[in-house]
């Protein structure tokens, strides 16, 4: 990929992280860890991969994005706002009575939201139905799903995984955000589904494991889907929970963050540092 394009996407990812902070500033707290670990995945989708039209969010031929781990909604709101689905001022209503952006997404409140998730383990089945429906319509559209690694313990996911393979849904692409943490601790200690790749493969899927913060790799990997004709694809994205916040990265206690002013200041400082690095990179490219 053109390095300029990638740099642009890295800037977008930074803006999405800034939007997430803006949401937390408004709501004073939120599920920040799993939102920040998915920023690159969601950025690649909304700013490169998804065939969507913010001006026509219900366009029947659009690609679908199903946020199965609904508690990651901060990253979805941040990306939809950045992509122009609604005015960024909506982000400032996070936490307010009757806000259009609740703590889990509601498709009836906000354009661009495809599903009402929040209870874990629903997204993959819904996405499977979408994939069958689109195929019936001979649509080229794809269905993308974002799941948490802790979420995989819900048995419903494995029903859906079997169904997707049985029905040869090669228009279905799943991301597992493998940040290796859930609420009570590391997934390896709470309820391990490792080795993840072998599990998915044994369910009839084709699997890739990638660095989930590498925008170029995310895009090139998705562009290779379906990894095999007639098989659903899963991308296991190795990530760092709370990525971008120095004090919170990889820490289980930031699954849900009640931001105190000191931490908020540090968070802004951390994002400013990322911006500095990006600027230096731009200069190196002579941009």
């Amino acid at each position: 990929m053109d390095p300029k394009e990638i740099l642009k996407l890295e800037y977008t990812a930074l803006n999405i992280r800034r939007n997430i902070l803006r949401l937390i500033r408004a709501g004073e707290s939120g599920h920040v860890g799993g939102a920040l670990s998915s920023v690159e995945i969601v950025t690649a989708l909304y700013f490169n991969l998804l065939n969507i039209d913010p001006g026509n969010p219900k366009w029947p031929q659009r690609d679908r994005f199903v946020l199965s781990a609904g508690h990651k909604c901060l990253v979805l709101y941040a990306a939809l706002a950045e992509r122009g689905f609604f005015d960024k001022s909506v982000l400032d209503t996070y936490g307010a009575l009757d806000s259009r952006i609740p703590g889990h997404p509601n498709m009836h409140k906000l354009p661009g939201v495809e599903t009402n998730t929040g209870a874990l383990g629903h997204g993959l089945s819904i996405a499977g139905g979408m994939a069958i429906g689109l195929r019936l319509d001979r649509s080229p559209a794809k269905v993308y799903v974002l799941m948490g690694d802790g979420e995989l313990a819900e048995g419903s996911n494995w029903e859906a995984a079997s169904a997707a393979a049985m029905h040869k849904l090669d228009n279905l692409v799943v991301f597992v955000d493998r940040n290796r943490l859930q609420i009570s601790g590391p997934t390896l200690e709470v309820m391990s589904y490792e080795p993840l790749d072998e599990r998915w493969r044994s369910f009839g899927w084709r699997v890739r494991i990638i660095d989930g913060h590498d925008l170029e790799l995310i895009i090139s990997t998705v562009n290779e889907t379906p990894f095999e004709k007639g098989k659903p694809s899963v991308i296991i994205a190795d990530t760092i929970k709370s990525k971008g916040l120095s004090f919170a990265e990889g820490k289980v206690s930031y699954h849900y963050w009640k931001a105190n002013p000191g931490e908020m200041e540090q968070a802004e400082h951390d994002l400013n540092n990322i911006e500095k690095q990006l600027k230096a990179k731009m200069e190196r490219f002579g941009l």
């Binding site: 709501g27 609904g70 936490g95 806000s99 609740p102 703590g103 889990h104 509601n106 009402n116 998730t117 929040g118 209870a119």
Partner: peptide
């Protein structure tokens, strides 16, 4: 009491 988390919660 899971006030702002919406109807799923």
């Amino acid at each position: 009491t899971y006030d702002q988390l919406g109807s799923t919660h």
